[in-house]
């Protein structure tokens, strides 16, 4: 692994660095993910994992039809996922569009993080000026986490300098807010691109790297997440700084979530098993985690009427 002595900013320097990273063999990475998904997590390990997964959820609504009422309802659920059981922990954060950040902040107070998607989410097709305004607006409204999208077009065209510049700009606009950089891995297509985009984002100042917007057909997958976990692991070895990972979209069941926890443990390591360094971008996942939790508590299978809808 190379060392990053000076921040790399030009396309040429970034290209030299990113293209010198080891390649990723897709079949091997997929096989590794499949092997890890055969881990069998039972009993107390499962109970522990379910509570951790709940604490890692960024409970999300990102719809054109979102309303203040809908956001408030979701926030209530985020604070207290299971009204019948006070031992259920809160989720990590709520994740909304920028215009809903103020409502979300008012609803959760200081108990939870408020994440706002910004930078012309989900496509990122706007001028940098508009994107920065979007970010400042959300931060001013109370968001303490910003989920930005990278310009995939620029990335795929090899214009790494531009992508870097945009992330650096957004990071500055975030102020103290944490920056999650969405790579939109479903559009990057190859795992080599996922690895390069991960490094590009980390070097530009991301606090988290996130897989997806949830708005393109392919969202988070275990192989993609493995590659990102390897990137944060290697970045830590190089710099001593731990960057977080957030798979988003397509994670709907407790079984899925637990598989991801196994991926973390056996790829990046136990240090990442905390909401500070790992999040699930999800909505329906929470209810499945609650159903599983109820089953483990009562010993029988629960039903959808026993968990609340958002």
């Amino acid at each position: 692994m190379q060392t990053v002595a000076e921040p790399l900013t030009t396309t040429g320097a970034l290209r030299e660095f990113l293209h010198a990273l080891p390649g990723v063999d897709e079949v091997g990475a997929t096989a590794r993910a499949a092997a890890l998904s055969t881990r069998s997590i039972k009993n107390e390990a499962k109970a522990w994992a379910i509570d951790l997964a709940i604490r890692m959820v960024d409970l999300t609504t990102l719809e054109g039809m979102d309303t203040p009422a809908k956001v408030r309802a979701m926030c209530a659920k985020a604070l207290r996922p299971d009204p019948t059981d006070p031992t259920v922990p809160s989720v990590a954060a709520v994740c909304v569009y920028g215009d809903m950040a103020a409502i979300a902040r008012a609803s959760v107070g200081s108990a939870l993080h408020v994440a706002a998607v910004a930078t012309a989410f989900p496509s990122g097709r706007a001028s940098q000026e508009v994107k920065l305004h979007d970010v400042r607006d959300a931060v001013a409204a109370g968001a303490d986490e910003i989920d930005m999208v990278i310009d995939r077009g620029a990335f795929l065209a090899g214009n790494y300098g531009l992508v870097n510049e945009q992330i650096v700009g957004v990071k500055a606009a975030c102020g103290t807010a944490h920056l999650k950089v969405i790579l939109e891995t479903g559009e990057l297509r190859t795992l080599d691109n996922v690895r390069r985009a991960s490094w590009l984002a980390m070097m530009a100042g991301a606090d988290f790297i996130k897989t997806s917007t949830g708005k393109v057909p392919v969202a988070a997958t275990p192989p993609v997440t493995i590659v990102m976990l390897q990137a944060v692991r290697d970045y830590y070895a190089l710099t001593g700084t731990r960057i977080g990972v957030k798979p988003a979209g397509g994670i709907r069941t407790s079984k899925d979530a637990i598989k991801y926890l196994v991926l973390i443990k056996e790829t990046a390591g136990e240090a990442w098993l905390t909401p500070d360094l790992f999040r699930f971008g999800a909505s329906t996942l929470l209810n499945d985690l609650l159903l599983q939790r109820q089953r483990m508590a009562t010993g029988h299978y629960s039903g959808p009427d026993y968990v609340t809808i958002d």
């Binding site: 039972k42 499962k46 951790l52």
Partner: peptide
């Protein structure tokens, strides 16, 4: 606390 897999026999 760490993530210890319970026996899954």
């Amino acid at each position: 606390m760490t993530f210890e897999y319970a026996p899954a026999l």
